[in-house]
């Protein structure tokens, strides 16, 4: 019992045992042994991140100032790549589609939250089976899920078109993946369907860590369902939720396999989200300077999109550390 209560003290009603006075009163500076531990623990992480990600990143910044063909000598051209990009009409199409595609995260969050809240209730039977079922879209490679949807949405022979036609919702088959109006919405919806269980797993783990006694206490104080959600549930899952939203925005925008498989970035540039544009420059036109220029702008756009969540997340962690 004591262990359970000690897990999340401070919110909403502090039931943690009194802190040992000595430990609480003075936070000692880390002693030598602890400092060793800190650096020893950090070392592998820092090594991995710097070697696997930061060196390529810095090299990319360097490359974006060059005309850098796949084969042949690179040539310094300063900001020319950036000027070319901002001047091009397709670039702004790309930005628009990227913003639309990032909305997928909101849909994912809605589905994941509904499923996680429902499956954290005690009265639902066969919970672990349903949890497994929820996982299914994410339990197979996104390229596979893409293939499934290509089959289901096939304009001539697929299930979806068939039912939409027979119910009279549409009058003639729609070529979902090449229709300029639909293609960008379809890749967004398929991405939402594919990736939402990622958030579901994280949110469920966070919900499971809330001690039942908090809900009981809130009920004793007469809190209704909405109040209980606001006062008990939300504060405890906010950190996990923000972390998951940040990761999903970043990954939705950086991972390319599925939308590329579905539409190849077309028609025209209608579904070329920034990551696909990067791919087109790098591997279809062999222009690595331009590819990294787009890549850096992708980082910038992603950063702008996650900035508010990042801010909230940092605040949440600081608060947690004050408790």
């Amino acid at each position: 019992m004591a262990r359970q209560e000690a897990l999340h003290p401070g919110h909403p009603i502090d039931i943690s045992p009194a802190l040992p006075a000595a430990a609480a009163a003075s936070r000692p500076r880390p002693v030598a042994a602890e400092r060793w531990l800190i650096w020893l623990f950090l070392l592998p992480t820092v090594l991995f991140l710097v070697l696997l990600l930061w060196l390529p990143f810095l090299q990319g910044v360097w490359m974006s100032f060059h005309k850098w063909p796949f084969i042949g000598e690179p040539e310094w051209i300063g900001l020319q790549n950036y000027r070319d990009l901002f001047g091009a009409a397709y670039f702004w199409t790309t930005i628009r589609v990227t913003l639309l595609y990032s909305l997928s995260t909101a849909l994912q969050l809605a589905l994941a939250l509904a499923a996680a809240l429902a499956l954290n209730q005690s009265f639902i039977p066969l919970k672990s089976v349903w949890r497994g079922v929820m996982l299914m879209p994410y339990a197979m490679p996104p390229v596979v899920v893409g293939a499934i949807w290509m089959y289901l949405l096939d304009p001539d022979l697929g299930m979806v078109t068939h039912y939409l036609l027979s119910w009279g919702i549409i009058s003639k088959p729609i070529y979902w993946f090449s229709d300029p109006l639909w293609a960008k919405w379809i890749i967004m919806l398929v991405a939402s369907w594919t990736f939402w269980p990622f958030m579901f797993i994280i949110l469920l783990a966070a919900l499971q860590a809330i001690p039942e006694s908090y809900y009981e206490l809130a009920e004793v104080y007469g809190a209704n369902l909405w109040r209980r959600f606001r006062v008990v549930t939300l504060p405890h899952i906010r950190g996990a939720m923000l972390a998951a939203v940040i990761i999903r925005i970043a990954w939705n925008l950086a991972k390319i396999e599925q939308p590329f498989q579905l539409t190849g970035g077309g028609p025209g540039y209608e579904t070329s989200v920034l990551s696909i544009l990067t791919y087109r420059f790098a591997y279809l036109s062999g222009d690595f300077g331009m590819a990294f220029t787009v890549g850096l702008l992708l980082i910038l756009v992603t950063f702008v999109l996650i900035a508010p969540f990042l801010h909230g997340f940092q605040k949440q962690i600081k608060q947690a550390r004050r408790r």
């Binding site: 991140l49 710097v50 930061w54 950086a254 990551s275 990067t278 790098a282 950063f303 996650i306």
Partner: peptide, 15 residues
């Protein structure tokens, strides 16, 4: 360092 690692366009790492 970590935030940037999260955002990196992975497709550029392949080659």
């Amino acid at each position: 360092i970590i935030v940037m690692a999260l955002l990196f366009p992975f497709v550029l790492l392949v080659v």
